[in-house]
């Protein structure tokens, strides 16, 4: 009996809304908020899987143009992709800084990430308006519908991330994020940010680049 008790994992009798946890106090040894983010990202995989899957289900089935190769500009999209990749780096630096309890440094990296993300969204808005001026609208063809909704929802995710990061930096400024819980909170935001990045890598590779390989 005592052996069983000794092996019984510890337990936090309370709860931990928005991440004020300590990593020891739970059954799987993973803070609730982090476990939740992983489960949520699994759900998001199904979401983007369905969007990207639909894009390929309808690929080449549009009746009439413009074709992807006629509207895509690899130069512009490569730049925005590069910016988004850079934002993943600043995000990683922000997580590192919170781990070292350097909150003001972390705040700077978080803001940099948000700015890079916002720039990416700006590029996307520019890209969308270019496509519309070249005759590709949501209503034009299957390509138009699937492309705008898929990349639009990705852009919406980036926007949510930018708002989230802005809130984080505000919380740090207001001193509402203490050094103990900042690490997990920022790390979870980082998980989300990297995921959204990876989704873009998939879209950029399979939707944009592959189009030009044939």
């Amino acid at each position: 009996m005592s052996a069983e008790l000794a092996t019984a994992p510890g337990h936090d009798a309370g709860h931990d809304d928005h991440g004020h946890v300590s990593a020891e106090n739970n059954f799987l040894g993973l803070p609730n908020i982090k476990l939740a983010m992983w489960a949520f990202l699994g759900s998001e995989c199904m979401f983007f899987g369905s969007l990207i899957g639909t894009y390929f289900f309808y690929h080449g089935k549009s009746l009439g143009g413009p074709l992807p190769t006629q509207v895509f500009s690899l130069t512009i999209t490569s730049i925005s992709t590069f910016l988004l990749l850079m934002s993943s780096m600043t995000m990683a630096l922000a997580v590192d800084a919170t781990r070292l309890r350097k909150l003001s440094q972390a705040r700077a990296y978080i803001l940099a990430t948000a700015v890079l993300g916002a720039t990416f969204v700006g590029f996307q808005i520019y890209e969308f308006s270019q496509f519309v001026s070249e005759g590709l609208k949501l209503q034009t063809s299957l390509f138009g519908s699937t492309f705008f909704v898929m990349t639009g929802f990705h852009g919406a995710h980036v926007t949510v991330g930018v708002i989230w990061l802005t809130m984080l930096s505000m919380l740090i400024s207001n001193g509402k994020l203490n050094k103990d819980k900042a690490s997990v909170t920022v790390e979870v935001a980082g998980l989300y940010w990297h995921f959204v990045d990876i989704v873009w890598i998939v879209i950029f590779t399979f939707v944009y680049l592959l189009e030009f390989i044939k």
Binding site: F47, S50, T54, L63, L138, T140, L142
Partner: peptide, 26 residues
């Protein structure tokens, strides 16, 4: 998530004139 995506397509078709389920558009 898959049905959410299906419903979003339906919403875009019905609200903004997207063509996900428009058989005349393929």
């Amino acid at each position: 998530p898959p049905i959410a995506v299906g419903l979003i397509f339906l919403a875009f078709d019905r609200t903004f004139g997207a063509v996900f389920y428009e058989t005349a558009m393929g």
